[in-house]
Design a protein around this nucleic acid. Sequence first.
DNA 1: ATCAGTCAGTTGCATTTTGCAACCAACCCT
DNA 2: AGGGTTGGTTGCAAAATGCAACTGACTGAT
Lengths: 153, 153
Amino acid sequence: MPDRSTYAAAEADSITSALDVIGDRWSLLVLRGVFRGLHRFGELRDDLGIASNLLTTRLCRLVDAGVLEKVPYQERPVRHEYRLTAAGRDLSPVLVALMQWGDVHRNQDGPRTTLVHTDCNAPIENLNRCTDCGASIDAHEIRSAESVRPEDT
Amino acid sequence: MPDRSTYAAAEADSITSALDVIGDRWSLLVLRGVFRGLHRFGELRDDLGIASNLLTTRLCRLVDAGVLEKVPYQERPVRHEYRLTAAGRDLSPVLVALMQWGDVHRNQDGPRTTLVHTDCNAPIENLNRCTDCGASIDAHEIRSAESVRPEDT
DNA sequence: ATCAGTCAGTTGCATTTTGCAACCAACCCT
DNA sequence: AGGGTTGGTTGCAAAATGCAACTGACTGAT
């Protein structure tokens, strides 16, 4: 019988609903482009190499989800660009966590990515942290609030 | 002309290669299951509602990628279960970041997820942190090490 | 020794999503 | 009038996914 008490039965819905928005092959790459400063249709299409019909559907989906917003940058003809909303900016930990994992585990021969804090010029890391003791937390120090015993994993 | 100087041109390869492993509809959900303590084929299939042919291909891919490993739990017939490798455990920030985002932005009426630190019983958060000053970092305080100016986003 | 049941898949086929290339519409500039 | 730029749409082929039925290796009960 499975031990579902550890590491959150409840997380199901949050992760699933997050993946409903960004859980396909392109959405996170589109968002990465916007984070990097690409805001227009053609910029994103050329940078990602995505087919334009797919970019259209992805941008619409992300706008509908409240992650991006269309803002006009000219009239006649009306042209829009795509910018992050607050919800979109809140996805930065996801991108940084993915990037960090890829750096360490998948891209060992390629160039290391270095994102830095604008204030300090020091590298950024992504981690899980305890809101009480402030310690950074490894996978096996996590459990769901409902459970009592940690699991060996 | 796009301003690609901000937020990392170099991150492309790391994020893309990470998404090569976990960038489809099911892989992260499979990993979430394993984090939750589901280690066997049937447990994962029943919990996720995934078709068994897809679960087969996902598990094989994750094993090939070094994220999961097959360990035999019985002989006659040989049966394996799937466990996280160190690389797999290192994906926990990605799952926690996604979960946290889903909690805040997608799942506002559903039950809140509460993952806690085993030592403290206090909730866990995921964030980007400066390795120098230790401050948690918001999206617009990030830039690529190659660039000089931050961008307005 | 046969029979039902479990577990971990495999196979075949329908449906959905993605990828590619060509085309379109509004506008500008010469 | 003709060409260029931007931001798409359309049609069709290819690939991924979903569903349901089936298999193979075993166990344990009759």
